[in-house]
Design a protein around this nucleic acid. Structure first.
Lengths: 204, 204
DNA sequence: TTCTAAAATTGAGTCAATTCTGTTTTTATG
DNA sequence: CATAAAAACAGAATTGACTCAATTTTAGAA
């Protein structure tokens, strides 16, 4: 079953994603018509719906690539964190934030977030929630690491703290993508300021 | 200019909101067709669009009523908070959460949140952001009150703390409305657990 | 009362996502 | 090779939010 059909399938998947990514960037998510994506990918409209359940799922595939890359980059920090709680958190969250606009425009993020809330049970909705959980888990792992090193008090509830840090960052990120004018540097500074309260509380 | 025309206008507004609220609840947001809302409100489709810019704005009007009610209820807690930081936060956030499903179903919340992210510059998007800010401000006011009473350390950055608490609650609430099965009691317990870290850090 | 400009209403028409159904291509089998 | 079943494709048809030009209603002046 890995003959012609499978190859064509993979190729069509790729063509659709590439066409969509380009059009989403150029014309925006709403501006990119399925018909246009289909034309550019050289498939029919029906075929796109054979590959993806809806327009959102196409965007979802692009978002997944982005977040997985970020998760990968984050592993390095968890394995070898800066020797200071504040910097450790700032470095990990900094990686998330700095990577975030690499493939996705703010408008694409807005759409992706909206869809994941609107249709939490859709393929993309579930994938997005899983990605959020993976990020939370990575922050929790960093905290556990800092506890092991002795930089964070052992009696701190690492799970709760990880959720708190992720939730705050994520909410700040949502507000960030909602305002086209907002700058990355401001976002990071605001999050650092908020985390300072936590850092003071959990340091040994 | 407060004659017949103004009265009819107010009456049509009310009829549209009432019809929409009922249909959103019964058929869901997507399931409620503008045509049906118009029929039930005894106006034409065009008239609805004369009163509201789009379907989301109709939902927006309902959400605003809900949140304003919650803000009102919260004032009492800020004016007269429980004599204990953990309880004070829990009481205020508890009011928000317990009221939240009074007029709005989870599905309606999901749609409202999605629209506010998707179209942050629309009438509703801006109103929603303002409501979020008002809630954050109320939490900040509670913290300031607790500082004044002497329950919270004066050197704590009240603004940053307020944002942290609100962002975390809001994110948890988003996850809550995304899962139809999630119970209010569980949500409150999870938030209490997260806030415990903060409470330990900021108490005198 | 009658008339007129402004305001509001109407519903048929437009547009784009999604669905549906008949056709074509691929694979597996004899 | 021939062929039948399965998988995938195509694009016309449907659906529902939203627009707009024509019509109706209202407020106030004469």
């Amino acid at each position: 079953m890995s003959g012609l059909r499978a190859r064509q399938k993979a190729d069509r998947h790729r063509r659709i994603i590439e066409a969509a990514a380009e059009l989403f960037r150029d014309a925006g998510y709403e501006g990119a018509k399925i018909e246009t994506i289909a034309a550019q990918a050289e498939v029919s409209v029906g075929t796109i719906y054979n590959y993806y359940q809806n327009k959102g799922d196409i965007l979802g595939a692009i978002v997944s690539m982005e977040v997985n890359e970020v998760l990968n980059a984050g592993q390095g920090v968890v394995a070898n964190p800066p020797a200071n709680v504040g910097d450790a958190l700032d470095t990990l969250l900094g990686i998330y934030i700095e990577h975030s606009l690499h493939y996705l425009s703010k408008e694409m993020w807005r759409q992706a977030m909206a869809i994941s809330t609107q249709l939490p049970d859709s393929a993309f909705g579930q994938a997005y929630t899983a990605l959020d959980r993976a990020l939370t888990e990575q922050i929790r792992a960093l905290i556990a690491r800092l506890q092991a090193i002795g930089l964070v008090r052992r009696d701190i509830d690492g799970q709760a703290l990880g959720e708190l840090v992720f939730n705050n960052m994520n909410m700040m990120f949502i507000e960030f993508v909602k305002r086209d004018k907002a700058r990355i540097a401001e976002l990071r500074a605001a999050i650092r300021r908020q985390n300072r309260i936590l850092v003071a509380a959990i340091g040994v």
